[in-house]
Write a protein that binds this DNA or RNA. Sequence first.
DNA 1: TGCTAATCGAGACGGTACGTCTAGTCTTTTT
DNA 2: AAAAAGACTAGACGTACCGTCTCGATTAGCA
Lengths: 199, 199, 199, 199
Amino acid sequence: MAEDADPARRSIGARRNPDSAEAILQAAETVLVEAGYAGFSIEAVARRARAGKPTIYRWWPSKAALLLEVYQRQKRVDVPDTGVLEEDLVGFLKNLFAHWRETSSGSVFRSLIAEAQSDETAAAALADYSLGRRSHTAQIIERAKARGEIPAEIDSAVVADLIASFAWRHLLTNRLDEDEATIGKAVNYVMRGIAAPAS
Amino acid sequence: MAEDADPARRSIGARRNPDSAEAILQAAETVLVEAGYAGFSIEAVARRARAGKPTIYRWWPSKAALLLEVYQRQKRVDVPDTGVLEEDLVGFLKNLFAHWRETSSGSVFRSLIAEAQSDETAAAALADYSLGRRSHTAQIIERAKARGEIPAEIDSAVVADLIASFAWRHLLTNRLDEDEATIGKAVNYVMRGIAAPAS
Amino acid sequence: MAEDADPARRSIGARRNPDSAEAILQAAETVLVEAGYAGFSIEAVARRARAGKPTIYRWWPSKAALLLEVYQRQKRVDVPDTGVLEEDLVGFLKNLFAHWRETSSGSVFRSLIAEAQSDETAAAALADYSLGRRSHTAQIIERAKARGEIPAEIDSAVVADLIASFAWRHLLTNRLDEDEATIGKAVNYVMRGIAAPAS
Amino acid sequence: MAEDADPARRSIGARRNPDSAEAILQAAETVLVEAGYAGFSIEAVARRARAGKPTIYRWWPSKAALLLEVYQRQKRVDVPDTGVLEEDLVGFLKNLFAHWRETSSGSVFRSLIAEAQSDETAAAALADYSLGRRSHTAQIIERAKARGEIPAEIDSAVVADLIASFAWRHLLTNRLDEDEATIGKAVNYVMRGIAAPAS
DNA sequence: TGCTAATCGAGACGGTACGTCTAGTCTTTTT
DNA sequence: AAAAAGACTAGACGTACCGTCTCGATTAGCA
């Protein structure tokens, strides 16, 4: 609605031009979707956004920073609150997988993780972000504690870690279309354990 | 024994020179350890191995193939057999983390996963490899089933997935030095479940 | 007196601020001396002068214009009047070389000539300036004509051209420290000719 | 006749491809002629020659080196040998001006001189080249000495310098179309001197 | 005296070029 | 016949300037 026409964005004075920022983020997402992480380069984003490379580098010091902001712009995943922890967790994972599958966020987040393996700042940014998300997921578990559904001694960070790890690995190995039963099993094992009940 | 002498390896005629192959794999590992995945390039490996790039491309069609072979050359991690599943799993994770931490395999495997995010063949190779490893891990669980330690209905693939996911995520986010207690908790939650026992 | 204080020059209303102009010219000269023509950029001058780039572009439409004004601000070189043409010319060249060597004018003029090779306006400005200087130099010769030292038919413009060319080439090839004897010879050849006197 | 078709030059093995070198030199000349020194960039030459930038940088470390080689490929200027020094010098200058005017060498040499004002290596290369040319020009004068046309004490380097300087300045100030009479005068002044003959 | 217009420093903008690095491919030479 | 080695085109990297633009503050001169 804003960056419509040819007249080409100019500077709007000695401050950041939000139209340019928007165009760049939009272009980054488009490039990622169309060409994948392999084809994702600052150069390509600049071309697509009709922006100068220095404009990108001015505001995003690294590929990682750009990826992260693109990812964070995506609508968040709904965290259900059914009153039953097991259903909450299954719902969360189903929503997350669907979100990753159906929007570009899957590609973006995969790229971000990949980038973090070679770029120190990306790793830091990802660690930061993950910490935030984990505590967010942990809240589902804390609610269950408050309801008395699970013992207070349970370390909700570790549980959140198990759940998130399961999601990451499915993302990284192209298994986001795993059937619902598998997700159910995984959550069930975490909830009920796999050991035979003591006789 | 040959690849360090100055007289430079020559062709040994119309067949693969095993010294070259060895030198290349060795160089790949060294480069990865010294410069990380960021500094890992075919160019750098060729330089270090005193080999031509085409020699590398002839035998390993992609960076991923090279990484995979380097990874597979590493000594496998021990899978303990204590007779108690929980101890087996904790031991396995502890061994794996130590192996990743203390040898170059950590870097190598991280790189392989990263590569798989942009390279189709790497993804395929990784999927293949993971499948093999997962069934391997699943055997620990099958043993427990055989012992009657856990019910036969348990889907050992899913359990193996949960365990491996936990390991991957720690590798990918630089948390291989996580304390033992956390590993214990994670395994315990999978074994016993987090839900309060029905009164 | 104003441009060194921190409070930073502001506009002084709807007219050119002489302090800014002065600061810019001063900065241009400093940059040229310190970094040479290679390091001479509008950006660098603006930085050094604590001025905005548009302020420079407003008053000097091109790098050449700025260079020219910087050059013209320099004190002119003395033209001796000894009553003997040969001594005048030698003195003139010696003074010019010394001036170019010991002040920034050498760098400035070199830069101006270089700039004129790619910039049309610079070429025009330089041509204009050269014309003025040449007629100035020609006056030395005209004086000699008036004294009857040389024939009236001598084309003083061509002589001035020969002398100036000699100076330019020494400037452009870093030979300003040429010994006095060489200058003497050059002038002598122009004065007396190199041909053997008809016997 | 060599780099004819589209099939695009490839490597011809582990040694310099003369077709590429030729295409690059050709492209450099074309770019200079079409866009002038202002538009002369390694980037543009690479584009025009369908060559990679590194290929250019591999063989020519600087813009200056490329310019110099382009200049030296041009057919040399004929040095007449009429048996009369004055005619030789006039002929040489006329030929040189025509050569500069009618081929691209004028642009190329101007650019080289300009480049030398900001690039140290260009300056060195130019100095080197000039030295060679000067001694070459000095030979005309030495021949005249041998004929007894001019005294043996004449410093032919200085005379060559005067002549070359005159040529350079005309090149640098776009005065290559100077009429023949002016050239004649200049040479005549150097030959016969401007001073009135001692009565 | 209050409005208008031009000026100032500042810095962002879209671009182009820099010189370096790597990707993969090609060809000659060597064994 | 195939290994080795270096050259090749192609294009991305991150940086420096280019010349233009817009801002907000500032002041002089006209009304």
